[in-house]
Design a protein around this nucleic acid. Structure first.
Length: 665
RNA sequence: GGCUGCGUAGCUCAGCUGGUUAGAGCACAGCAUUCAUAAUGCUGAAGUCGUUGGUUCGAGUCCAACCGCAGCUACCA
């Protein structure tokens, strides 16, 4: 028996679970369920990746603490994966005591052995927000082609790569201020020391060939040291022996796999993390990741493990990205589908099956075609596989008290179905699930042909041929049973219903070796209903609607024309009255004078302004904003303010002389 | 720009180390059938295998260039 620890990449703790995450977790879960059916001891852990500047900023925007935000999202993520039948043994967070201890221990070991060093780094700093700016938070002019509005790492126009410090006219995307150059000590992991080891490791079968090619590019180019520290403010773990220095999120994220597993071990008798992670462990560790993060998992992580005296991963399984109808997932097209939206309209097993048909052991992108999705599920599962049981069960019940025949009516067909377990196991093991599904549906085709050839409906009333009818339908049900075994890693809920129909214990892989003979089965009830294309359309429509109401205040705004701006009626208004709103911790209710009319507007400025201080002052409002029903009443406009939220909100007001009702142009 | 991968019937894909008229499923058309969640079976139509050159007795399969798509290009998670 193999002992296997499996992980999926850690979803970010500042966003919802969407199709991309589901693809990865479902494909991992299929592999895990297969291993368990084979009788292997297989643990599957994951966690939310909680750390980083982005988490900190997202929490600020929401006006809450990072800890509160990540815990509520963690619970939500775990619940949604569960509803897609993704069977994590533990869904934890990287912001945990276990992870902090493990990350520090690994770091200290690396530091003691001379695997790390410090160096002075010059970086852009936003004096207003008081933080060092990562590349994505700086924009400016490309130093090579002069294109404006480019991010701090590379130019979208000419493709040049550069340091953020080389940008012309840099500005912070967080505050729009001009950042200043500051230097700071950074801690580095000296990856180059592991070049020989990594060359060897990547040449083993630990990674797919195309991944090895990609890694070869970095290996021959020479490995750079990894900057594993960040200056505060940052949401993460502090580096031991420093002040205001934090571990970069990619230092503690993969350690989060170990931490999640350790947390599981703590509440599981007889399970010891060291059995899986010590250097000479004979257990297996498998990581499932997307191709965007192979450098972290196939260079950095194995080197860190090696340097810290742990075992290295048995295998990193890399997959491609999900596209929908041939294009990147898009909110406006309604294809950036969140788990929660999908669940409102469709059965999770539809998606699991469709993903399975697309799975291969390569890094190609996987395209979801919505029409194809509906057709494949309806035709393969309902029309072919489930149909076999559906059409045979009636005869067995009407003529034979629901009891299957003693022998196999067609030995050859039975052997084909039963023996397929060897090759299918091989395909599952390799991750070539799409090919496995094709072979499974081919078996279903063959079985439907077989039933059509023997026409049991013609002979069921002929006493001479009763045995034949029972034999044909019993074999049909037996083949169906093997198909359930083979599909069970993909369709656990359908398999459970089929097990109830067959009146058998939960099926294991080797159950396909022997048929059911002289065995009573239940009456047949539908195991699976067809997808209605209309429900798919509802998911798309709901996704579009979500995108329209979403607050994307941190995204870069598209260019607009003067007439676009003209559509917005901005007016000067005078605050007549301002009051707290019962039950709302962020809102104030404002009564505004717009010259020719008065309005009630709710503004999210409670944490920043005392209502009494607002009465009498002039503000700017969007006067033609569609009225919005809120929990506490209807808001008839929007008061303009700037700032990230919480206590840092700054109302706009006009210079002396402006009067209520004046239009802002 | 560099790099990695991909480009085969309307759609999803299979074609291993080059070798007879390029395969399957879905969709489509016709026929059959009615046991089954209008499910199933049979037959058929449909491809200059991204383009152009090359290697070879012979290339979808190897090489080169080009075109198109996706991704990566290391302090974005």
């Amino acid at each position: 028996m193999r002992r296997i620890l499996v992980t999926s990449a850690l979803p970010n703790a500042n966003g919802a679970i969407h199709l991309g995450h589901l693809f990865e977790h479902i494909l991992t879960d299929i592999w895990v369920r297969f291993q368990r059916m084979m009788g292997n001891e297989c643990y599957y852990v994951c966690a939310d990746d909680a750390h980083g500047t982005a988490t900190m900023l997202a929490a600020e925007r929401l006006g809450t603490t990072a800890e509160a935000m990540i815990e509520s999202l963690r619970a939500e993520h775990a619940d949604e994966f569960g509803r897609f039948h993704v069977d994590h043994d533990n869904y934890y967070s990287t912001h945990s005591a276990e992870n902090e201890r493990l990350t520090r221990a690994i770091y200290e070991r690396l530091a003691e052995d001379g695997r790390t060093f410090t160096a002075d780094v010059e970086q852009l700093y936003d004096p207003e927000r008081k933080l060092f700016l990562a590349d994505r938070f700086v924009k400016g002019t490309c130093p090579r082609c002069g294109a404006d509005d480019q991010y701090g790492d590379n130019c979208q126009v000419c493709g040049a790569t550069y340091d953020a410090t080389e940008l012309g006219n840099p500005r912070s995307t967080l505050s729009d201020n001009t950042p200043e150059l500051r230097s700071s000590d950074h801690y580095f992991f000296d990856l180059a020391q592991f070049t020989d080891f990594l060359r060897e490791w990547t040449a083993s079968d630990a990674v797919q060939p195309e991944v090895a090619n990609k890694l070869g590019e970095w290996l021959t180019g020479g490995l750079k040291a990894w900057d594993i520290s960040r200056d505060g403010p940052y949401f993460g773990f502090t580096i031991p022996g420093t002040e205001g220095k934090y571990f970069y999120v990619w230092m503690d994220a993969p350690v989060g796999y170990m931490a999640s597993f350790e947390n599981l071990c703590d509440r599981t008798e007889g399970l010891d993390p060291d059995d899986f992670w010590r250097a000479d462990s004979d257990a297996e560790v498998h990581h499932f990741i997307g191709k965007d993060i192979i450098n972290f998992h196939c260079l950095f992580w194995p080197a860190v493990l090696r340097g810290a005296g742990h075992r290295t991963p048995t295998k990193v399984h890399t997959h491609g990205f999900v596209t929908v109808d041939g294009a990147k997932m898009s909110k406006s097209r309604g294809t950036f589908i969140n788990a929660s939206t999908y669940l409102e309209h469709l059965d999770p097993e539809y998606l699991r099956y469709y993903f399975a048909t697309k799975l291969a052991a390569n890094t190609d992108d996987v395209d979801i075609q919505l029409d194809d999705f509906v057709q494949r599920v309806n035709s393969d599962l309902v029309g072919k596989v489930v149909n076999i049981a559906s059409r045979c069960a009636g005869f067995i019940h009407r003529g034979f008290d629901g009891v299957l025949a003693e022998g196999m009516h067609d030995e050859e067909l039975w052997a084909a179905a039963s023996n397929a377990r060897h090759e299918l196991a091989d395909l599952y093991e390799r991750g070539d699930v799409g090919r496995a599904v094709r072979q499974i549906t081919a078996l279903a085709d063959r079985t439907n042909q077989y039933i059509a050839e023997h026409e049991p409906w013609k002979h069921v009333n002929d006493p001479e041929r009763r045995d034949e009818v029972q034999g044909v339908c019993s074999l049909g049900i037996n083949v169906f049973r093997t198909l359930v075994v083979y599909l069970k890693p993909i369709l656990p809920a359908m398999a459970a219903k089929a097990e109830a129909f067959l009146k058998v214990e939960p099926l294991a892989w080797e159950d396909a070796a022997e048929p059911l003979v002289a065995h009573g089965v239940d009456r047949f009830k539908p195991l699976f209903t067809r997808i209605d294309r209309k429900d798919v359309d509802k998911v798309v429509a709901a996704t579009v609607a979500e995108a329209e109401t979403a607050d994307d205040g941190n995204a870069g705004s598209p260019e607009v024309r003067i007439d676009d701006f003209g559509k917005i009626d901005l007016r000067i208004a005078k605050v007549l009255d301002a009051n707290f709103v019962d039950g709302a911790d962020k809102l104030l209710e404002l009564r505004l004078d717009l010259g020719d009319n008065q309005r009630t507007v709710f503004a999210g400025v409670r944490e920043a302004y005392d209502p009494n201080a607002l009465v009498g002052r002039l503000v700017v409002v969007v006067a033609n904003l569609a009225p919005r029903k809120m929990r506490f009443g209807t808001s008839e406009g929007m008061v303009l303010a700037a700032g990230p939220g919480g206590e840092d909100i700054f109302l706009l007001s006009p210079d002396e002389g402006a009067e209520p009702g004046m239009r802002v142009t």
